[in-house]
């Protein structure tokens, strides 16, 4: 995208309603290719990454305009290369970052050149192209989404891996969801509902396909394991109007699922009471 920004919209915004705020400009230290954003309701902060500067940026919740982040994790000790997505555990004060063959964990209040406090990495982890994750502080679980490693079609499809939240080192995942029944090609953004122990995963299909067949949003249980189909599935198509869903977040209060669709350049909100 030519213009990097974070735009905020009222929950009930629709059509071409203008954003209530935009955060953009040199002082924000944002770049384009922000593939994730997480709001920390406990501390009223939101977090994004800057992959081109190997950084994690933390803003105050009400940030507006060309406002600088309040904390930045960046530097030689961080081991960050191209952080793309992340999640924050506001209960245990930790930030989780997937980076290919590893999961890096930082203190939530870390600022500057901060070393990870844990790292999941090694052959037993099955981590490969780890691209996204969500942490469940209630059940102490960490859900990781794997990408498809290249665009040739020869690389294995992605998967969902379930780890313990406090796992460290070369540990086996407690559950692995992958295979043809799962329909997973690659997972982009993840959301979870800890109270129902559910995983909501966007599955946008091959990156180079503008309007891929078989893209969907799938809902699995954190207890699922193996080649299992999602419990619920919002397919792309004329009814849902989805074409290439890449982002998802839940609004439990209103029982809504909010989706970012990159082919539509749009944000769509679905009433989805079944998963709350």
């Amino acid at each position: 995208m030519a213009h990097p920004q974070i735009a905020t919209f009222a929950r009930l915004a629709k059509g071409g309603d203008a954003p209530t705020r935009t955060i953009a400009g040199q002082a924000t230290k944002l770049s384009r290719t922000m593939h994730d954003i997480r709001y920390d309701a406990v501390h009223d902060e939101f977090l994004v990454t800057n992959p081109f500067a190997g950084a994690i940026l933390v803003f105050r919740g009400g940030a507006d305009g060309e406002e600088a982040p309040i904390r930045i994790i960046q530097g030689p000790s961080t081991m960050l290369e191209s952080p793309d997505r992340l999640d924050v555990d506001a209960v245990h004060n930790e930030i989780f970052v997937p980076e290919g063959d590893r999961i890096l964990v930082y203190p939530r209040e870390g600022n500057g050149d901060v070393a990870p406090i844990r790292m999941i990495r090694g052959p037993d982890t099955q981590l490969r192209s780890a691209a996204t994750l969500s942490v469940d502080p209630v059940h102490d679980l960490l859900i990781v989404g794997l990408n498809k490693t290249d665009r040739t079609g020869r690389a294995p499809n992605g998967a969902l891996l379930v780890f313990h939240r406090t796992d460290n080192g070369n540990v086996k995942p407690r559950g692995v969801i992958r295979g043809p029944k799962s329909g997973i090609v690659r997972i982009t953004q993840l959301a979870i509902n800890p109270q129902r122990k559910l995983i909501v995963a966007t599955q946008p299909g091959p990156i180079e396909d503008m309007e891929p067949e078989g893209a969907f949003i799938g809902v699995w249980s954190m207890d699922d394991n193996g080649d299992v189909a999602p419990r619920w599935k919002i397919p792309t198509g004329p009814t849902s109007t989805l074409k290439k869903p890449r982002g998802a977040v839940l609004d439990p209060k209103n029982k809504e699922l909010i989706v970012a669709d990159m082919r539509l350049n749009a944000i769509l909100t679905y009433y989805f009471p079944e998963i709350f």
Binding site: M1, H3, P4, Q5, I6, A7, T8, F9, A10, R11, A13, P19, T20, R21, L30, R32, T33, M34, H35, D36, I37, R38, Y39, A41, D44, F46, V48, G61, G62, R85, T188, Q189, R246, G247, A248, V249, L250, D251, K253, I258, V259, A260, D261, M262, N265, A266, I267, T269
Partner: peptide, 17 residues
């Protein structure tokens, strides 16, 4: 848009490019 967030305090949707 590759991700989306939700600010429960302000009831706002966060959309990064």
């Amino acid at each position: 848009p590759g991700g989306v967030g939700y600010d429960t305090k302000r009831e706002e949707i966060l959309v990064p490019n």
